[in-house]
Design a protein around this nucleic acid. Structure first.
Length: 277
DNA sequence: ACCCTCACCTGCACGC
DNA sequence: TGCGTGCAGGTGAGGG
């Protein structure tokens, strides 16, 4: 599920539902999830730790504990958190269970098993491979027009590819990259360094607009970890994509048929008229 | 230093 | 019904 907005929703839901809770025990049934730690060490370090904060950096969820450790979680494609009440059955693909002092269980499930958890000293979070190199947060001052202009100027890759690179532009995934390019009326296969200043400006605005709309959309209040079905894209969020997953359908702006091409192993959708080369 | 390809997994929709 | 194919929202290792 998760691009930056979805991760932000998960973070907020975790804050509402488990911040302040104490973990009395944990269980991990998929060792690679927490590698390189052993499950024994992982469980021992978490025992009796209290969750003191839940934050986000890029698409990483940072669960801070009162023992100077932080659990950094990346959901990748299908990772989910949910909170079970005492009588609830453990769902399929539950790979880690955190038993809370009030009898609830915080569960991490992940159908495709791509998700990762790293437990390490809070002071060392920024040294974590994957986090240390991340581009500035899209809503920070650091992610300025000048930053984007310089970043694009340095790359001969296509925009679509570059927008997915979290070390250059943070927060977009395959959906929002396509949506941002549509919003900015820019062709996904354009070479980054060849973009005019006018277009860079439009793209900068579009990236923020698309992410902001998704973060602050009507969905956020409805999401709850106690109702896992709340976590999905598309209709469940009450949103319709402009181009994503709309191959062959008419563009909402001009009526042209939306096109799709597989590019670097992933689908790219665009309107051939609104987003000319 | 950069950029590309592939690998990591399960499950679903599709066509034969 | 069953089986093969392609596809799915993300990243990181390895190689050119």
């Amino acid at each position: 599920m998760p691009e930056l907005p979805e991760v932000e929703h998960v973070v907020r839901a975790l804050r509402r539902s488990v911040n302040g809770s104490r973990i009395v025990a944990s269980e991990v049934t998929l060792p690679k999830l927490i590698s390189p730690l052993s499950t024994a060490v992982f469980n021992r370090k978490l025992k009796n730790a209290r969750i003191t904060a839940v934050n986000r950096r890029g698409k990483y969820i940072l669960i801070e504990l009162d023992n100077r450790l932080t659990l950094a979680v990346h959901l990748r494609m299908t990772g989910q958190f949910l909170v079970l009440k005492p009588d609830d059955e453990l769902p399929r693909h539950a790979h880690a269970v955190f038993y809370l002092e009030d009898e609830r269980r915080l569960v991490f499930r992940d159908q495709r098993q791509f998700g990762v958890m790293k437990l390490l000293a809070s002071s060392r979070i920024n040294t974590l491979k994957g986090i240390s190199e991340l581009a500035p947060e899209p809503f920070s001052d650091e992610f300025s027009l000048a930053y984007l202009k310089e970043t694009l100027a340095k790359s001969r890759r296509t925009l679509k590819t570059l927008l997915l690179d979290q070390t250059r532009v943070l927060g977009l995934g395959n959906i929002y990259a396509a949506e941002a390019l549509f919003r900015a009326r820019i062709n996904p296969f354009k070479i980054a360094s060849e973009l005019s200043t006018k277009r860079v400006t439009r793209l900068h605005q579009a990236i923020r607009d698309v992410l902001r709309a998704a973060v602050s959309g009507n969905s956020s209040s409805r999401i709850s970890l106690e109702n896992a079905e709340g976590f999905s894209y598309g209709e469940a969020f009450g949103r319709i994509w402009q181009v994503y997953e709309r191959e062959g359908e008419p563009c909402f702006k001009c009526g042209a048929r939306i096109r799709r091409l597989t590019h670097g192993g992933r689908s790219t959708y665009w309107c051939p008229t609104c987003q000319r080369r």
